[in-house]
Amino acid sequence: MSNPASFRDQSNWGDGYELAIEVGSTGDAELQTLLSALWSAAGVRGCFGHRDCEPDEQDEVPCTVASLTEYGHLLGQVRLPTGQMAVCGCMVVRGGDESSDWLDFYVPTGALDKAGIVYWDGQPYYRSAVIDDWLASIAMETFKQAPFSLGVVGWMVSGLADASVLADELPKERGMGYLLPRGGVLRYGAANT
């Protein structure tokens, strides 16, 4: 079995199974606070700008919004709930004037495949309760240090919800996991459809 933690193995990369966090503003200071808290909560090893060489073949980059802007993604390795190490990344999706920014932490589906994590059973969507719950726990830890307006977990979920539309209520039918604060407490509603 090949190594899901290898940067150079391009088959580890691809679409992301992600924790997407609606930042609630477009300020770099808020985004930096969230990025630092998220990286720490996930226990990411290293912070790198290139996926075409292994971590020991490149210099680490600062885990900053400036590095995100320069490289497009920040990359590292994370321990999955199964105990295996896998590549991971983080990117920011700027909302512009119309909406807020999103910070996306992801494990690529190629790495999940190699780690033996099942996330597709022939249905028209990808879903893994194990990864969903793990990402939700990372969000809960992150929220303690850097509150945010909304988090969603699942395959390619960034921007698929909006905190202002939800009005503090978790949807009854959920095609993805939702993390929504109310009264300073982050509530998790797992995917149920």
Rank of each mutant, 00 (worst) to 15 (best):
S6F: 00
S6D: 00
F7Q: 02
R8T: 07
D9W: 05
S11P: 02
S11I: 07
W13V: 01
G14Y: 07
G14V: 05
G16V: 10
A20S: 15
V23N: 00
S25P: 11
S25Y: 04
S25R: 09
G27V: 05
G27Y: 11
D28F: 12
A29P: 10
L31Q: 09
T33V: 15
T33H: 13
T33K: 15
L34H: 02
L35K: 05
A37L: 13
A37P: 09
V44H: 08
V44F: 04
R45A: 11
C47F: 02
C47E: 13
G49F: 11
H50S: 11
R51V: 12
R51W: 11
R51N: 11
D52K: 03
C53L: 12
P55Y: 10
D56M: 02
D56G: 04
E60G: 15
V61P: 09
A66W: 14
S67I: 15
L68G: 07
T69C: 11
G72F: 06
G72K: 06
G72V: 06
H73G: 03
H73A: 04
L74N: 04
L74W: 01
L75F: 14
L75D: 00
G76M: 07
V78P: 07
R79H: 08
L80G: 01
P81V: 01
P81L: 03
A86V: 06
V87G: 01
C88K: 01
V92H: 01
V92S: 06
V92I: 10
V93S: 12
G95L: 00
S100A: 11
D101C: 00
W102M: 05
L103K: 01
G110K: 04
G110F: 06
A111K: 05
L112V: 06
A115P: 12
V118Q: 14
W120M: 03
G122S: 04
Q123W: 02
Q123F: 02
P124H: 01
Y125D: 01
Y126G: 10
Y126H: 13
Y126L: 03
A129R: 13
D132L: 14
D132C: 14
A136P: 08
A136Q: 08
A136F: 06
S137D: 15
A139M: 09
M140A: 13
M140I: 13
E141L: 15
E141Y: 00
T142N: 03
F143M: 08
F143A: 05
A146E: 02
A146Y: 07
L150S: 05
V152T: 15
W155E: 11
M156Q: 12
L160V: 15
D162G: 06
S164G: 10
S164D: 14
S164I: 12
D168H: 08
E169I: 15
E169D: 14
L170R: 01
K172L: 12
R182G: 14
G183R: 07
G184P: 05
V185E: 07
L186D: 08
A190K: 15
A190P: 13
A191G: 11
